[in-house]
Nucleic acid binder design. Structure first.
Lengths: 251, 251
DNA sequence: CGAAGTTCTCAGGGACCTCTGAGCGAGCCT
DNA sequence: AGGCTCGCTCAGAGGTCCCTGAGAACTTCG
């Protein structure tokens, strides 16, 4: 397979790109360097151009250089608060999308209003899948992202996921999923025909501070199978010793 | 699907545009920078071109550059009062629409006199849904807005809302709603088939200074259900862990 | 000034979700 | 085949999320 001519993610999936076909630019702002590192890696994996900053001042400086399409912004920063940074960022680039990171307890507090513009937020601890999904949603709605293949729906064989309505159907039949089941399936559907290890799944779908064991993944795969593969040709396959694959039914 | 060619809101809804198809231009004038930021974000989210100014002098200057179709104008400004600014604005652009922001106990007489010309006002603290709705109404009545799709009524399945008459019917049957219930339903109807989190709903429907808990949203959803879903196929669905969706009944 | 309506707080209870533990079966190796 | 590892599933504890009734504070209106 030839890549290089086309904008692709490191995972081989087609990337969301800017209208001119270049990579989307994202700025990550968090004073927790480990977390910033993880986020940066995950977003690069999506095929985006990423820069990181550790405080409000360097965030504004970086924004001047990068002119990012989106910013992932920790509300609690050492030097300034989210509102101030947001204002400065909007001065630099008025149409930038913002995804806020916030502690769970702070939600009721000050976030109300910040996100009112159509921006979004996730509460710590979050899963990488969630951050990526929210960011994709923001960029898509902002019209900054040009779709190469996928629409707001994810499709694998007769399995269809509407991320906005949080609805999943198989062969037209509605499948009800719990939040964790939904995120697990989303991760699988975004990586069809690819074996995903239990460790990979844990890293992506579960919160970064989850200490649990791989057994949970087996359990949730089991739940998913019961709900979507029951009485049908199975789409989720076990690769013993390696992990799981989601495949459209072969014919 | 290609976006960008067409004028759409960041929410994906079709936008109100100027007769020539370009984005409507709005000027926000308020010395509370946080509030101005929130308003700016919310109006951009509607697909409009927005600029902000913090005092009367810079408002007039910005108006010269932007030539706005509408102005959101705080009556209390640090340098001059709103009425003086209004006169200057009318010199710059005689047909501009004005939405006043005013404290609840402000002298309603003078406001009434000014708004008699067709302009409108909202009292602080307000909800973003209300500001957006008033502004849409103003622009529509002034003939500045070209309708792309929606008229003054919103329709989801057999549920119909006439925004101007403040009337809601389901299957032709009139449903009486309190002001808050009405705004909540309006927000839901403007985002059908889309899961809205309680935080999002709070941000849009409740006043920006409302410190209450997400619990209120549950309560009002409960009220709405009692009034519009009672004895019928339900249209409001709970998505546990995520929020609520409004969906037309069949499929 | 009383009555009706509206908004919000509080608390109980129920439904659902997540994860643990254990038993069992299936595959793999020698 | 036997023994081992790996994966599947059941059952259930504990926790979280959500719904709803009751009522207090406030506003509006007659």
């Amino acid at each position: 397979m030839l890549v290089g001519a086309m904008n692709t993610t490191r995972s081989g999936r087609p990337a969301l790109t800017r209208p001119d076909g270049t990579a989307l630019r994202v700025l990550v702002v968090d004073d927790d360097l480990d977390l910033a590192e993880v986020l940066t890696g995950a977003l690069r994996y999506e095929g985006w151009e990423v820069r990181a900053a550790g405080d409000g001042a360097s965030a504004v400086a970086a924004a001047h250089e990068l002119l990012p399409d989106a910013v992932v912004l920790d509300v609690m920063l050492p030097d300034t608060d989210g509102f101030a940074v947001l204002r400065r960022l909007h001065e630099v680039k008025p149409d930038v999308c913002v995804l806020f990171l916030t502690a769970r307890d702070a939600v009721e507090d000050r976030i109300a209003g910040i996100t009112a513009g159509g921006d979004d937020y996730v509460t710590k601890p979050f899963s990488l899948e969630e951050v990526v999904a929210r960011l994709r949603g923001l960029l898509r709605r902002a019209g900054m992202a040009r779709q190469l293949e996928e629409g707001p729906r994810l499709t694998v064989g007769d399995l269809v996921m509407d991320e906005e309505a949080r609805e999943v159907t198989r062969a037209g039949e509605l499948i009800e999923l719990s939040p964790t089941e939904f995120e697990l399936l989303r991760f699988l559907m975004r990586n069809p025909r690819r074996v995903l290890s239990k460790a990979q799944i844990l890293d992506r779908v579960w919160s970064y501070d989850f200490g649990g064991r791989a057994h949970v993944v087996e359990l949730y795969i089991s739940y998913l199978r019961k709900k979507m593969d029951a009485g049908r040709e199975p789409m989720i396959h076990t690769v013993r010793g390696s992990g799981y694959v989601l495949k459209p039914v072969s014919r």
